[in-house]
Design a protein around this nucleic acid. Structure first.
Lengths: 351, 351
DNA sequence: TGGTCTATTGCAAACGTTTTCGATTATCTG
DNA sequence: CAGATAATCGAAAACGTTTGCAATAGACCA
């Protein structure tokens, strides 16, 4: 139905190839004929068929964004950064939600490959087994990974690019902050153990305690969802009401904790302090506003497609590129300094 | 680099067309040759080039999702519903953020048309002038609109399909609920005046007051963002500290109001009640949890692409289809019943 | 045995571009 | 004015599929 290049050429009285050249402002074409062709194209409301163009050029100028769930506000912000960067480069982003389900994730990858996307930025690759990862590498399409652990990143077998927040440093900040506040009975409610970002945060967090000869905090792994965090916290409260601070693996987890705490009549931060991670927009409107560790999400998404575009322009054969995004503490009102013994007394006395 | 159909055919010792037929399990092909071709294809790790296929079939089996901002949790949930439905139908979704900017929106549309998407679900079309809307209609690609006003939907010139929440009923519920609680000094902090969903909510809201002979609440229009709502509320507080209830155009606006209220030392719901709209997930974790009007977002996105797919299969020439999604009040803890005079006194006495 | 029918396969055109290569013309140089 | 050079354009192949049509071959029937 839409006008084709052939139509334009016929209408302009030139050959199809000159029409093509005129519209792609190539060299070696008369300025008058170009103007004429352009005018005719505008009149016919012609727009080049990207599908046909993609077939001959081999470039589909579209990228894939494969994350676990766009409803997670972290990914929403990241996606926005990615989409903006893609659009600026004249590419489009196809959105895929994998739920971190290995089979679904692989089906999406196949899907994207069949569509001949120029590259993929993926949430993570850890649900995939070795065989699947090999197939991914063999696909020959540039891939940028998010949320990989620092261990994976430094492994020699690792051949993917990546962009991650400095989760190790983040975990360290968290520990030092909570320790500095005088907390002794701390628990870390983390995300999935297999998830690079969460495992990095957890290990760096624990490392600080170990290195300072402090008792190791309890760590509970689980899904990084509101509901799962809520359940974990409820359960925790049933076995131990002495905890004085919670380091949540991310803000959504922190929200789940807060909800459970509120329902149990436990005050924040008077009774227990909560520290989040990510600095999602909603952290400002909870009450109390959540103290958290900021991770530039928009920039992460942006950086990911920039690396992708870079790899594409360099035509694949390249060393993987790793970018680390800085994090920093944002103090709000969900953590309080405790005068150790005093608080401990109040709470133990209560039982 | 990837294996092509020609490779498969050569390797299997058959013609390219039989290879095609074998893999598309068409009729009229020997069962043995089919099995053989399939085996060879698997061995070569062949996956059909969707770009080439799209060129000849004219179908690109991809859809466009053009919204204002994926960071808005409302759209994030909607996008998930849309993406799930698209994926189930073997389509992919390309994500576009327009910021409700007319020029950007139009550029995205051109972009999607050039890519020969099968259809587009768009946030809204109101930023576009008549001329642009005509071009959209003329493009001949199925379009489903979100957030259209009921006025537009019933206009005979309107030729787009749509799926919207029952915003008129929602506005009505809101008014009746707040009135029933005994509130007299109510303000409605709405989204943009030109936005169908917000204008419907506002007009239905006001209509209830008018029909019951009650004084007309103040309405302030603005951006439907956290920051804008925060500013509006701050400003409002400067001129009128007697307000007793706020009906927010949506939850994000409600969050902005809450933040401004909190900062001014005003308690919710003791001093002022807040009623939201949308029932975003975060409404559960604010304190107090937000009373709001639930709008099924996931279902909205799902319904939108279902209509789209339906239109595509019916090959365009169809009456536009409109679907209205039901809404209902969810009572939480951000609204309180007031005994009119008493509260009024306390507050005026304060000044 | 010859003819018709059916099942299976091959041939080639088509989809709408880009791009290489050669052809044509115009311009310039001596 | 002849030849060379440059500028401009056209012809055609190519990208990887699908698909209408023709061709082949065997099967069946008379």
């Amino acid at each position: 139905m839409p006008a084709t290049l052939k139509d334009v050429a016929r209408e302009a009285g030139v050959n199809i190839s000159t029409a093509s050249r005129a519209l792609n402002n190539a060299f070696g074409i008369n300025v008058d004929t170009r103007k004429h062709v352009i005018k005719v194209a505008a009149r016919l409301n012609y727009r080049p068929n990207q599908v046909a163009r993609g077939l001959v050029t081999g470039r589909s100028n579209s990228l894939g964004l494969l994350i676990s769930d766009i409803r997670n506000p972290f990914f929403a912000e990241l996606a926005r950064g990615a989409e903006d960067a893609a659009f600026n480069a004249g590419c489009d982003l196809v959105l895929c939600n994998s739920d971190q389900n290995a089979e679904k994730q692989m089906r999406y990858v196949e899907f994207l490959l069949a569509k001949r996307v120029g590259g993929i930025v993926m949430n993570s690759v850890t649900p995939l087994d070795e065989d699947q990862q090999d197939r991914l590498r063999a696909a020959g399409v540039p891939i940028v990974l998010l949320n990989v652990s620092s261990a994976d990143r430094h492994s020699p077998a690792w051949r993917f690019s990546s962009v991650v927040a400095d989760n190790l440093y983040g975990g360290e900040i968290a520990a030092k902050y909570l320790i500095g506040l005088g907390h002794k009975n701390i628990v870390h409610i983390a995300g999935p153990r297999t998830h690079g970002a969460f495992s990095d945060r957890a290990s760096a967090f624990l490392k600080v305690f170990r290195e300072n000869g402090l008792p190791k905090p309890r760590v509970v792994f689980g899904e990084h969802t509101f509901g799962a965090a809520y359940q974990s916290t409820k359960q925790l409260l049933g076995t131990d009401r002495n905890i004085t601070a919670i380091f949540a693996g991310n803000d959504v987890i922190a929200f789940g904790c807060m909800r459970a705490l509120m329902e149990s009549g436990i005050r924040i931060p008077e009774d227990v302090s909560i520290l989040g991670f990510d600095n999602v927009e909603m952290t400002q409107i909870t009450s109390p506003p959540l103290t958290t560790i900021d991770q530039p999400k928009y920039e992460t998404g942006k950086a990911a497609v920039e690396i992708l575009l870079n790899m594409i322009s360099k035509d694949g054969v390249r060393e993987p590129e790793h970018r680390i995004i800085g994090v920093h503490l944002i103090e709000r009102q969900s953590c309080r300094k405790i005068s150790g013994a005093a608080v401990q007394d109040r709470r133990t006395a209560k039982r």
